[in-house]
Write a protein that binds this DNA or RNA. Structure first.
Lengths: 254, 254
DNA sequence: CGAAGGCTTGATAGACCTCAAACACAGTGG
DNA sequence: CCACTGTGTTTGAGGTCTATCAAGCCTTCG
């Protein structure tokens, strides 16, 4: 149930049995959130953290005139609101797609675990740092790249993050976002996202239909998005790109 | 010497004498870095963290074609590379302005301090979280706001951050950035930054000459940048805006 | 079958970029 | 002390990427 998180924490060094146990027994309960419902609202002061077990969510912020900026995408193994542990929230979190399942862990219990297992505290601190690294890449993406490159970069990132927690298959991955939501994440209008996606399809980099992305040409997608995966801190041996070329191969090379 | 950092850490709760002592005795040495020199280079694996004691610096990343995105501005009391403590660097850090002075603290010593004073570890973790909150605001700024609003927002942020560590005076603060660097931080071209600054000056919101900004009309600057300071986590009583109106008043209201 | 949400398309406008050159200013060296 | 040089700022002109507005289409779902 919490294996995506444990897998993430073990990217740097294996956890002891006791530590794994502590993580696994941390959640108080599960919480199923319906489509587009708010998980956490802006400015809340929380007593619990929420960990995604299943589905998708996003951090976002509304602007005065109703526009929205999505600042992060969250998938299985990601904490929605770890920062709520040490300060009040400055963003909202909403479920994307049909629904999301969350594990709820009380701050109190989490702090108790840190006391017994300080290494876990450092593990989650590192998680906050990787979060920040992703923010930096998004800044570069939005600040300096064309719409075409932005979308390509985003897709590369999501591919790898999902792949690292075992949520990809044969070059496919789920992406339950509308084009408007993609626009809100990348600082683009819906119309322009639509046209740019058409371009990516026309050039056979991807397919994207009914919330499923298929990567047709990883190499060119990576190049188009100027994507360098190192910021995600996934060990190379855990990192699998989709098969190259238009037809994903089923076997290994002879 | 480290008072800006201590002040920052005490925003949430006072430190004990022992904790303050530990912080103050942490640095191994000071390091003076000349103008625009690299403090830390991308992809380094570090054994020390660098804390700004004096001057300015920025986190940045170079793109393939030579363009640059500045992802963070760093002032006294900010760590350049706290993330280097737990993972390899994914960005460079450079000094802005004439020079910057850094306090250098070894990872080893820092970890030792955390063992004796776990609350300091949480304090720095919170610092990482505030860093992330700033990234989120920058994303919103670059993703959704006009050039005019972006610059206004940036100036508001810097004003408050500098004010909180005692580096403002009578509506003035130092900002040793060229217009090209401002553009690199906000995802704008130099030319457009220039024209937009002229607009801000023409409308008497600010003055900006030889690396000094003067805030003439805080209210309108805040409004123009849709600035909401809460993300900086500065207690309201520590937060002082420049005097309203064109002439900063010297006294308090009678 | 109608409604609602999402996707697609066309036309137009505007914000911002790029290129290019002139200008201002500080530091350097003769 | 004054040209000289380099960096940073300013201005002009033109181009383009992306936003906005508006409508039509498609799919899903009750």
């Amino acid at each position: 149930m919490l294996s995506p998180l444990i897998r993430k924490l073990e990217r740097f060094s294996p956890l002891s049995e006791a530590e794994k146990q502590a993580v696994q027994s941390a959640p108080l309960r599960l919480w199923q959130v319906a489509s587009h419902q708010d998980i956490i609202s802006d400015r809340a002061r929380l007593a619990e953290v929420h960990l995604i077990v299943n589905g998708f969510a996003c951090r976002y912020k509304l602007l005065g005139d109703g526009r929205r900026q999505i600042t992060a995408l969250l998938i299985a193994g990601d904490f929605c609101d770890l920062s709520g542990l040490l300060m009040p929230m400055d963003f909202g979190v909403a479920a994307l797609g049909h629904s999301a399942t969350l594990a709820v862990i009380s701050h109190e219990r989490l702090m108790g675990i840190f006391e017994k297992h300080p290494r876990l505290a450092f593990g989650l601190w590192r998680d906050t740092m990787i979060d920040a690294a992703i923010y930096r890449q998004w800044l570069i993406n939005i600040g300096r790249r064309s719409a075409y490159a932005r979308i390509a970069h985003l897709l590369c990132e999501i591919w790898l993050r999902m792949q690292a927690v075992g949520l990809t298959r044969d070059g496919f991955f789920e992406l339950p976002m509308t084009q408007a939501e993609i626009g809100d994440a990348l600082g683009l209008s819906t119309v322009h996202v639509n046209r740019t996606l058409q371009q990516l399809r026309a050039e056979s980099l991807i397919e994207f239909k009914s919330n499923v992305v298929r990567v047709l040409d990883w190499q060119r997608l990576e190049t188009s998005g100027e994507f360098d995966p190192s910021y995600l801190q996934i060990a190379p041996e855990l990192m699998v790109s989709p098969a190259a070329g238009n037809a994903p191969r089923s076997g290994v090379r002879p």
